[in-house]
C-alpha cells in the first residue's frame, strides 16, 4: 500500500492549521459568549461597545499562536523533510488565512453587536479611535483585525524564533527590540504586558488610514524579514528531551 506524499508547503500548512483550529474556535466562542453575557448583565448602563475589547484579547491570542509556530512545529517539520524556506512560505500562507479569519470574526462580531444596539436603542460608541467610524464598516474592521493580529502574530513568531535561534540572552533583547519598534511609533500609556505598535497607534486620536497602513505594514515587513533571516540559518537542536 503506497501513499502519495504531499507537497511540503501544503503539509506544513495543514499541520499549522491542525494545531490552531481548536484554539481559534475556543477563542472566538469564548469571546462571543463573554460579550453576550456582559451585554445582558450591563444592559441598562451600556455606554460603548463591548466587542471592541476583543481587540486586546486578540492581540494576546495571535501572539501566542505566533510563538507556537516555531516551538511547536520547527523540529517535527524539519524531521519530516520540510526545508526552512518551505516552512517559512507555508507560515506566510497560514498567517494570511489566520489573520484574515480573525478580521472577519471581528467584523461579524461588530455587525451582530450593532444589531443588538440598534434594537435596544443603546448608545453605540468606541473607547478607542479606529480605522472604522461605524460598526457596520465591515471592510475597514476586517482590515484592522487582520493587521492587528498579523503584527502580534509576527511579534510572537519573531521573539520565539530569536529565542530558538540565539538562545535566552539575545532572546530577551528581541523582546526589547519588539517593544521598541512598537513604541517608536508612538509612546503612550499601556496597560497590557504585550503591547503592539498597532494597538498603541490606534490610541492616537488623529491618525489617518494611510498612516496606519504605512506604519503597521513597515513593522510587519521588518519583522518578517528578521524572522526569515533567522529561520534560514537556524539549526535544529540535537536533544529534544
Amino acid at each position: 500500500m503506497m501513499t502519495k506524499p504531499i507537497s511540503p508547503v501544503v503539509l506544513t500548512w495543514q499541520i499549522l492549521a491542525r494545531s490552531t483550529w481548536l484554539t481559534f474556535t475556543l477563542f472566538w466562542g469564548v469571546s462571543g459568549i463573554l460579550t453576550v453575557l456582559l451585554l445582558a448583565v450591563d444592559s441598562p448602563g451600556i455606554r460603548s461597545s463591548y466587542w471592541e475589547q476583543v481587540f486586546e484579547a486578540l492581540n494576546i491570542y495571535a501572539f501566542v499562536v505566533g510563538v507556537r509556530v516555531t516551538y511547536g512545529h520547527l523540529t517535527i517539520l524539519m524531521n519530516h523533510g520540510v526545508t526552512r524556506k518551505q516552512m517559512a512560505l507555508a507560515t506566510l500562507l497560514f498567517a494570511l488565512v489566520f489573520t484574515l479569519a480573525n478580521g472577519i470574526m471581528m467584523g461579524i462580531g461588530f455587525a451582530l453587536e450593532h444589531a443588538a444596539y440598534s434594537s435596544n436603542a443603546w448608545q453605540e460608541a468606541f473607547a478607542q479611535p479606529h480605522l472604522f467610524k461605524t460598526a457596520v464598516d465591515f471592510p475597514a474592521i476586517v482590515a484592522e483585525g487582520l493587521i492587528l493580529s498579523a503584527s502580534t502574530f509576527l511579534g510572537g513568531h519573531f521573539i520565539a524564533t530569536t529565542f530558538y535561534r540565539f538562545g535566552k540572552i539575545i532572546g530577551m533583547f528581541s523582546i526589547g527590540l519588539y517593544l521598541l519598534i512598537s513604541f517608536s511609533l508612538e509612546v503612550r500609556s499601556y496597560s497590557n504586558a504585550i503591547v503592539t505598535f498597532t494597538s498603541d497607534l490606534t490610541r492616537k486620536s488623529d491618525f489617518t488610514a494611510a498612516e496606519f497602513f504605512l506604519w503597521n505594514g513597515g513593522g510587519i515587513a521588518l519583522l518578517a524579514l528578521l524572522i526569515q533571516y533567522m529561520l534560514q540559518t537556524t539549526e535544529i537542536k540535537a536533544k529534544t528531551r
Binding site: M1, T3, P5, G81
Partner: peptide, 12 residues
C-alpha cells in the same frame, strides 16, 4: 504524517 512526507512510504 510520515506517509505524507516520505515518497517511498509503505503504509501497509
Amino acid at each position: 504524517l510520515a506517509s505524507a512526507s516520505w515518497p517511498n512510504w509503505d503504509h501497509g
